[in-house]
Design a protein around this nucleic acid. Structure first.
Lengths: 112, 112
DNA sequence: TCGTTTCATCGTCTTTTTACGATAAAGGAT
DNA sequence: ATCCTTTATCGTAAAAAGACGATGAAACGA
């Protein structure tokens, strides 16, 4: 028998439910965090917050990345719901998704 | 010459500074987001917020991951500054880093 | 001292992400 | 109709992340 002298108090005693699943909201939150967890995408996000309406090309000009790469990052941000793009002639006009960004902030404030 | 009829207004005109670097804070913020951008780490984070003092083994019990993997995730959270661990006998006691978590929330509220 | 427990780290394999050139679709100009 | 611009997507190569077994260090009990 080996029992080491733990100085800490255990608060969760019922380990009947082994797995500690995330809620749908937490999952979504994590997904958004992942999207912003890349410097380039954080840059894009900030750029969009300062330049509410701009097209892909504007962002490409400002980042040291190829157009294809920027487009890919924009897709990640879109899939996370942080950004939405509307086709504007031959271009695509991007802007932050206000509702989802607000939700994100709220979640960070409350859930975490 | 080709000029397509853009319906949107351009707000940033001075493209003298081509690169749009992140500030130190934004970089740090992105780093923290990346850490929480993985479901397992989000789970650990929430677990720690509900069980303020617990050792690695407690977390391993609760996640469907090997001990080595959990330890690796804890390192990521530590490196991001979200969590700190203190050696407690043969074990390591983990808890959230209150100051940094508070900073994180503040940043999300203001910067984004 | 010797066995036991806890945990971080190492080595390795697999999967995912990132980045880019090339290409094609879509829209506007001429 | 033809050319030009914009951008998403494809294919691919390189880099990073994720997962796990094995190992070793640290701490305690017997």
């Amino acid at each position: 028998m080996y029992t080491f002298n733990r100085k800490i108090t255990i608060m969760n005693t019922n380990h009947t439910t082994k797995v500690y699943d995330l809620t749908v909201d937490e999952e979504r939150l994590s997904h958004m965090m992942k999207a912003l967890g890349h410097p380039a995408r954080m840059q894009i996000f900030r750029y969009l917050s300062e330049n509410p309406q701009c097209i892909t090309g504007d962002i490409v000009e400002v980042l040291p990345l190829a157009q294809a790469t920027v487009s890919q990052h924009l897709k990640v941000l879109r899939d996370a719901g942080l950004v939405c793009g509307t086709i504007e002639g031959p271009a695509t006009c991007y802007c932050l998704d206000g509702d989802n960004v607000a939700w994100f902030k709220r979640q960070v404030g409350s859930v975490l």
